[in-house]
């Protein structure tokens, strides 16, 4: 028998391990989601995305990630669940009080010169931060001149944000933060406590518009004096970070301000040369005017 006539048994040179199988499952799941709902997670940082998908898997009591694929394709309510898991985040009012103090001292003082102020809070999640912002603006006598757009890609988060009802057990922590942030009144002036919950006063909401906006695919919608986007870019890869920062640059007026999360920076981005640094540690930047 010559070697050429003998049928060789099929030998797999590489048998995929569990990790490689999971990587394929995730790729297919993300394709299904992008196809069905136009949410593109392909430029998310993979490590935390993988964790969140696995968290969603545990909660949904399915056996493996592949079983999530028919669910997202045929059950929109399952996708809502998935999206919720993707957006779960640690947030609090006046998180990093010093940031709010700097915002007040270095940015609000400049915004006072405008008769009408547009502010975009991108990725507002459940709203704790946008109400913190509104409180500071009110104390500076600016809120009535402001139009704040608070946007998120998760409609369920937006509903919570719009209601502005938070667990009362958090209030002492928020009060402490408020004081560190340079609060001028009493934090208790801004909410009503009832049955273990604290409801944010309606007058703070009057100048806030909550709206759906997906940073990955949606465009500019107004010219802004200030854009706040904290701890959103940490989940994106370099490409997506640059795209979103470019969107912010386009959305800002000349000399408009940008506030990022305390571990996010323009330093290694393509937008570095389009902004001045106003407060390095607090990540406050100002768009350079070429006029």
């Amino acid at each position: 028998m010559t070697p050429s006539t003998q049928a060789k048994p099929q030998v797999y040179s590489h048998r995929p391990n569990e990790d490689e199988v999971m990587a394929l499952e995730i790729k297919l799941l993300l394709q299904a989601i992008a196809f069905r709902y136009d949410y593109d997670f392909s430029h998310y940082a993979q490590a935390s995305l993988t964790r969140r998908i696995n968290n969603c898997l545990k909660k949904s009591q399915l056996n493996n990630i592949a079983e999530m694929i028919p669910k997202v394709l045929h059950q929109p309510e399952f996708f809502e669940l998935f999206l919720k898991e993707m957006s779960v985040t640690v947030t609090e009012m006046f998180r990093d009080p010093k940031v709010f103090k700097e915002l007040r001292n270095k940015v609000f003082t400049q915004l006072k010169t405008y008769s009408r102020i547009n502010i975009w809070h991108a990725g507002c999640a459940t709203g704790e931060e946008v109400y913190s912002l509104a409180i500071m603006l009110k104390e500076e006598g600016l809120l009535h001149r402001c139009q704040i757009y608070a946007t998120d890609f998760n409609n369920q988060s937006l509903k919570v944000a719009e209601q502005g009802i938070y667990k009362a057990e958090k209030i002492s922590e928020y009060t402490h933060n408020y004081q560190l942030a340079g609060g001028k009144a009493s934090f208790a002036d801004y909410y009503q406590a009832k049955h273990g919950y604290a409801k944010i006063h309606n007058d703070l909401k009057e100048h806030i518009t909550f709206a759906h906006h997906n940073l990955i695919k949606d465009q500019c919608f107004a010219q802004m004096h200030l854009i706040i986007c904290r701890n959103v870019l940490i989940y994106f890869d370099k490409t997506l970070q640059n795209n979103v920062l470019s969107l912010f640059n386009q959305s800002l007026l000349h000399r408009g301000y940008l506030l990022l999360g305390d571990k996010e920076s323009l330093e290694f981005s393509k937008q570095k040369n389009n902004f001045d640094t106003i407060a390095k540690d607090q990540r406050i930047y100002q768009k350079i005017s070429y006029e």
């Binding site: 490590a47 935390s48 985040t89 640690v90 989940y235 571990k263």
Partner: peptide, 8 residues
């Protein structure tokens, strides 16, 4: 490195 604000 990457960072996340997933709950504790």
């Amino acid at each position: 490195f990457s960072l996340s604000l997933e709950p504790p």
